[in-house]
Design a protein around this nucleic acid. Structure first.
Lengths: 106, 106
DNA sequence: AACTTTTATCGTAATATTACGATAGACTAT
DNA sequence: ATAGTCTATCGTAATATTACGATAAAAGTT
């Protein structure tokens, strides 16, 4: 079918998967790189940086907002997007812990 | 439409996204946790560990194989799956570097 | 050879994602 | 008030993902 079985997995597994899914598109990786390499929030011109339409970029931004990695605040006519430090660090910790626990294997 | 624009992004962005996408499902996170917490490869009984059908688990394993995070080798009647250390470390480095470059912001 | 076990693949259906044009909503500036 | 700018949302279409039963393929066992 396609009926989601996500409830059968635990909260941590779901959170890791959800964060990873948000990173699972090159446009969103590019957006985050852009925001992360800036010393300030990004106001207005994200669309110009990407080879995608305004509607599509807005959709990707909404997905990043959904998982909490970025937050947007209104600045007069424009919108300013910033990395959400708290969620970003949570994501970094979760992922690095997850990737870190490999024991020696074959 | 839905026509992929992935070619418009660079190789690194695509690789990060592709790895993240592979981690973007709780079943695959669970499989990797399972393999990573073992001191040996996992032969045979992965399906029993998951609340999914054999066909679905096989599909998730194929996805993990596709990105290179695991490798499978035939052991008589069974199949042994192992974390691919090389790809795993590459993934860990890529992700931690990606998550690491945040400058101070708002 | 016939049977069992294990895993991959095929076929199929439901749902989700990706993408864009068009439109609406919010704000500034004239 | 009107016009311009920026962003979100709606509508829609194409494609991808998720899930499973059924079947095939490969290996060991009797």
């Amino acid at each position: 079918m396609g009926l989601s079985k996500k409830d059968s997995f635990d909260t941590l597994q779901n959170r890791i998967a959800d964060l990873a899914k948000a990173l699972g598109h090159p446009a969103r990786v590019a957006i985050l790189q852009f925001l992360a390499n800036q010393n300030a929030c990004m106001c207005g011109d994200i669309v110009e940086e990407l080879p995608l339409s305004q509607a599509t970029v807005s959709q990707h931004l909404a997905e990043l907002k959904r998982v909490g990695l970025i937050k947007g605040e209104i600045d007069g006519p424009k919108m300013c997007y910033c990395i959400d430090k708290k969620a970003w660090n949570e994501a970094k910790d979760l992922l690095s812990q997850f990737m870190g626990d490999v024991k020696k294997c074959c």
